[in-house]
Amino acid sequence: MITVALPAGRMLIEAARAMGLAGYDCPYDSASRKLIFTGDGMKYLIARPSDVPVYVARGAADVGIVGKDGLSESGEEVYELMDLGFGRCRFVLAAPKDDIPGLKSALDAGGMLARLRIATKFPSITREYAAGKVIRPEIIVLKGAVELAPAIGLADAIVDIVESGKTLAENGLGIVEQISESSARLIANRSSYGIKAKPIADLMARMGRSGTVGGGQR
């Protein structure tokens, strides 16, 4: 038996569906509050998306499904096995629409943005982005809706994930530039990948045959 960590929230239904399409019994019941259930030789855990890499890295789960955004932000050491293709979204730098032209020009100038204030729920990804741009912004870490920060003068810009961009537009924000793309990934515990090589390889093969997009990197 292998233990699979599934992400609670917006990707849970798609993750359970992916397991079903691969031929596994994944009896997830949206009406239930159970966080642990079994089916077809699998044990499933439902965890907060940001906790999935932690569960997998620490051996509480052998494999997990998590967005690339959550995986990158976690910094946990796991094997990234497959891009599953669903849950697609983008990481963007966004700002009030009137400020976008000036911000784009300043970004091209690099060091001129030393005093830029960026609000985000993803400090690690934001720091990596800033380092690549050779800028040193003040990073303000928030837990809730970061779109509010520019409107109340807390920040000049935000780094966040978007799907359609509708929420940004409704809050007077626009995209300055795209940082990266994110989608659901199949990840594995490093020890489990060796000890339970056969069932994990079978899981990958069945997911590949079911139409999920492979692209493993260990």
Rank of each mutant, 00 (worst) to 15 (best):
L35Q: 12
G20C: 07
I195T: 13
G174P: 12
G153K: 11
V141A: 11
P150N: 07
I13Y: 04
V146M: 03
I118D: 06
Q178S: 15
R10F: 11
K166M: 10
D69F: 12
G216S: 06
I100E: 00
R218Y: 00
G172Y: 04
M207W: 06
N189E: 13
S105M: 11
V92A: 07
L21F: 13
E163L: 14
R88D: 04
D98A: 13
E163P: 09
M19S: 04
I13Q: 13
G64N: 03
F37L: 10
A15H: 02
V213D: 07
K121G: 13
A145R: 13
A149Y: 08
A184W: 03
A60F: 13
K133L: 00
K143Y: 08
A61F: 00
K68T: 02
K143P: 03
S182H: 12
I125W: 02
M204P: 12
K166P: 01
L84R: 03
T212P: 00
I200N: 05
A205H: 03
I152P: 04
S72P: 00
A114F: 09
S164V: 02
K198C: 01
A157S: 13
D202R: 07
R48I: 10
Q178K: 10
K121S: 13
A205R: 11
I46M: 12
D40V: 01
I175D: 12
P150V: 07
P96W: 08
I13C: 01
S164D: 15
G215S: 01
A31P: 01
L71Q: 07
G75V: 05
P150Y: 09
R33T: 06
G165V: 10
I140F: 02
L116Q: 06
D40N: 01
F86T: 12
A15F: 04
S182W: 15
G59H: 02
T126P: 02
I158F: 08
A57C: 06
S74V: 07
T120P: 11
S32C: 03
K166T: 14
Y44L: 01
D29G: 02
G9M: 11
I152F: 11
R136G: 05
M19H: 10
V52N: 09
I158S: 09
Y79K: 10
V63T: 13
P199G: 09
R88A: 11
N171V: 15
V162L: 14
E73K: 04
I2H: 07
N171G: 12
G9C: 13
L21I: 09
G132M: 02
A106R: 14
I152G: 05
A188W: 12
A60K: 11
D108M: 00
I65G: 05
L142P: 07
G216E: 00
G211F: 09
G23F: 14
R127C: 04
N171F: 10
G67E: 04
S191K: 15
P53I: 03
C89V: 03
A15M: 08
V162G: 14
R209F: 05
I125G: 05
G102P: 04
N171D: 15
K97R: 14
I187G: 12
G23K: 00
F37Q: 06
P49A: 09
G111R: 01
V146T: 10
V146D: 02
K34T: 08
M207V: 05
A106N: 03
T126S: 06
L107R: 00
V54N: 05
V146H: 05
P123C: 08
